[in-house]
């Protein structure tokens, strides 16, 4: 099985006009035609330009996060490279008593961790059930979810705020409140993982059931081990979402600064507070958030791509 494929030095090609079989050098050995080379060059130019545009803001962000707060300024300035590189901003974020950054970071991390576990559980339960079990009301559930999805999510927030307030899960209780809100309705986002489950042959379930497994055992022993890519995808999505959420977090934690998540906290530095003084600190905070998330994402990129393309194709 593992014999290496030899790349042939020549391809055999049927020349249709001459009606003869010829030996031709394969593509990677053939000298490209001029037209082909010109096209490829322009594609490279475009790709390089795009790469610059795509990366520049992040590079700038990093530069500015290293600008010295003490000797230069924390505001937006008219130059890019710091005159003096320093860790002032980071030091302030992590150690200064008036900085709540660590607290926000912790809040978000807690929310993200809980969501990664609970939300994944909810989403997989729903998608598995709707994909592989047949029962009365299945179509109805899917239609109801479809209709509910057409209402803007924030609409529910007004009611939920008052509900949560009754339970003490706003402001001081914002962190558990956020977890509750993210997780409770997350079952509605079953679409992509259902698409994945749909691709696993049904005969596997049937075979296992004949072999003596209950449906719960089929789920645990057969389907879950096969669903690893989509499980990772779901965890990744559930973990990443809370880092970017502004709407719900800002509303639930309204006015209670220690209970913000990073998005809300950094947002007010830039837009509400005197952002000029906090700009480089925002940059440093952004770097601290973005770096671990980006590494995580790139490491699991494969699963993300699988989930996204699968979901879009199956609609």
């Amino acid at each position: 099985m593992s014999e290496k494929k030899q790349i042939p030095e020549v391809d055999i090609v049927v020349d249709q006009e001459a009606g003869v079989i010829r030996e031709v050098k394969p593509e990677h050995l053939r000298s490209k035609s001029g037209h082909e080379r010109r096209v490829n060059t322009s594609v490279y130019v475009i790709l390089v330009l795009m790469s610059v545009i795509w990366l520049a803001p992040f590079v700038f962000l990093v530069f500015q996060s290293f600008r010295s707060y003490a000797t230069e300024s924390g505001a937006m300035v008219a130059y890019l490279l710091p005159k003096q590189w320093s860790l002032d901003n980071y030091r302030w974020l992590l150690t200064d008593p008036s900085s709540k950054f660590l607290r926000w970071y912790g809040n978000t991390l807690i929310v993200a961790a809980f969501c990664a576990v609970l939300q994944t559980f909810m989403v997989l339960s729903v998608s598995y059930t709707l994909s592989r079990l047949r029962f009365r009301g299945r179509k109805l559930i899917m239609n109801v979810v479809l209709v509910l999805g057409m209402f803007p999510g924030f609409l529910t927030m007004i009611t939920l705020y008052f509900l949560l307030k009754q339970l003490g899960l706003t402001q001081q209780g914002a962190v558990p409140g956020m977890i509750l809100i993210y997780v409770a309705s997350s079952g509605m986002g079953y679409y992509i993982s259902k698409g994945f489950f749909d691709t696993i042959p049904k005969s596997l379930d049937e075979s296992a059931r004949i072999d003596g497994a209950t449906r719960a055992q089929v789920f645990r022993m057969i389907i879950m081990p096969l669903a690893k890519p989509i499980v990772i995808y779901t965890i990744l999505m559930a973990f990443m979402a809370p880092w970017g959420d502004y709407v719900f977090a800002s509303y639930i934690a309204f006015g209670s600064e220690p209970n913000y998540n990073v998005a809300v906290g950094l947002y007010q530095w830039v837009n509400v507070a005197d952002y000029q003084g906090f700009f480089t600190r925002f940059c440093a905070g952004g770097v601290l958030v973005a770096v671990p998330i980006t590494i995580l994402f790139l490491a699991l990129q494969k699963y993300y791509v699988e989930g996204v393309t699968g979901g879009a194709v199956k609609g």
Binding site: P201, L204, S207, I222
Partner: peptide, 10 residues
Amino acid sequence: AMVFQNYALY
């Protein structure tokens, strides 16, 4: 016991 067309091996 049942044998399936597409084998249905785990």
